[in-house]
């Protein structure tokens, strides 16, 4: 998985913006702002952040399910930002998506075999017998042999999600966007799905964008992790490096909030003040400055950018860059702040 990063990335996102206008006003929901990242061939990029941080919007932009306001999406060397019609349809088999709620994303009136066959038919596999054979293979891969004649409502959540995965891998895509694929599932089923996804990746070498707020799952499956806050990337790093050490206060706050099932592990709690602001009124400059315990006055004025402070480990924290942090310091005592 890791050695694939040396090659040309399968996906390059450059300065992506997605702002949804609000009817009857000049305001916009700034779902994604200036987002740039790459995904290597066979690599899994975890995209994490709180609800409302814009993770899903970014995923939907990659599939052109929604059109970006600005920026470029380059897939396998081709700019796909403005593809339409026939060219866009030709792209579809190569980028697939798995949604959060499997029962919502499967047509309730189609049988499982038809659901899995549909992308094959659309991709030009017109021979019914060939299609049926391939559907059989796919159902076998997701351990649902013999489920072809059933309807979605006859399946449990975990089984339905496996159907959605079979449908996603049917056309052997280069990239699969997995949008919270396990958050609607029970914990035991979640483990099955994660392990299935990892096994399929080893067999087919597809790249994953794994969108999730389940940080334990991300740590398990992702090669690299990108952290979003209010539509902007705060930190991006190899997974093992990020879970060991963070270079952005938001990353530290997020990771120190994870409750690991181990009563002896008591990480230093790094708490942000209040709650995430509305993406309609994103604070200027660093969007975190209104909640960050380490914020300085300049955090509210200097625009942010991502800079690599350790190999592959980039942060958007102005202070971290200015002071060349090797880690996020603990919150300073109040007395020290008075002197500033």
């Amino acid at each position: 998985m890791a050695n694939a990063t040396a090659n040309e990335p399968i996906l390059r996102v450059e300065r992506l913006d997605k702002h949804f206008p609000i009817a009857g006003s000049n305001l916009t929901v700034q779902a994604a702002t200036d987002v740039s990242f790459t995904i290597g061939r066979g690599e899994t990029l975890g995209l994490v952040g709180e609800s409302g941080s814009g993770k899903t919007t970014v995923g939907r932009c990659l599939l052109r399910l929604t059109d970006p306001t600005a920026g470029r999406i380059v897939f396998a060397g081709q700019d796909i930002t403005t593809l339409s019609g026939h060219a866009l349809r030709r792209l579809r088999p190569r980028i697939q998506m798995v949604f959060q709620d499997p029962h919502d994303s499967l047509n309730p009136r189609h049988r499982i075999a038809d659901i899995v066959a549909e992308p094959l038919r659309l991709a030009g596999m017109h021979d019914a017998r060939e299609r049926a054979a391939r559907v059989g293979e796919l159902l076998e891969m997701v351990q649902l042999r013999g489920f072809g004649d059933r309807f979605p409502h006859q399946l449990t959540g975990g089984q339905a999600q496996r159907v959605a995965i079979a449908r996603a891998i049917a056309t052997k895509p280069d990239l699969i966007v997995l949008d919270e694929p396990t958050s609607a599932l029970d914990i035991a089923v979640r483990a099955d799905i994660i392990n299935l996804l990892m096994r399929l990746q080893r067999e087919f070498g597809a790249s994953y964008l794994f969108i999730s707020h389940d940080l334990t799952a991300v740590r398990h499956i992702a090669d690299r992790v990108a952290i979003m806050y209010l539509g902007q990337l705060m930190e991006i790093a190899p997974a093992h490096a990020l879970f060991r050490n963070q270079l952005h206060p938001y990353g530290k706050a997020l990771l120190s909030s994870v409750l690991y099932p181990d009563p002896t592990a008591t990480p230093a709690r790094f708490v942000l003040e209040g709650e995430i602001p509305s993406p309609i009124h994103v604070p200027p400059a660093c969007p975190l400055h209104t909640r960050c315990p380490l914020a300085r006055p300049e955090c509210a004025t200097i625009p942010i950018w991502l800079e690599e402070l350790a190999p592959g480990h980039a942060t958007a924290c102005t202070r971290a860059i200015a002071e060349s942090w090797t880690t996020v310091p603990d919150v300073e005592p109040v007395a020290a702040m008075v002197g500033d």
Binding site: I187, A191, T216, A217, P261
Partner: peptide, 15 residues
């Protein structure tokens, strides 16, 4: 339950 939570390998008997 613990294994499932940690996504550890092995039988997840409860699944």
């Amino acid at each position: 339950l613990l294994r499932a939570t940690m996504l550890a390998r092995g039988e997840t008997a409860a699944a």
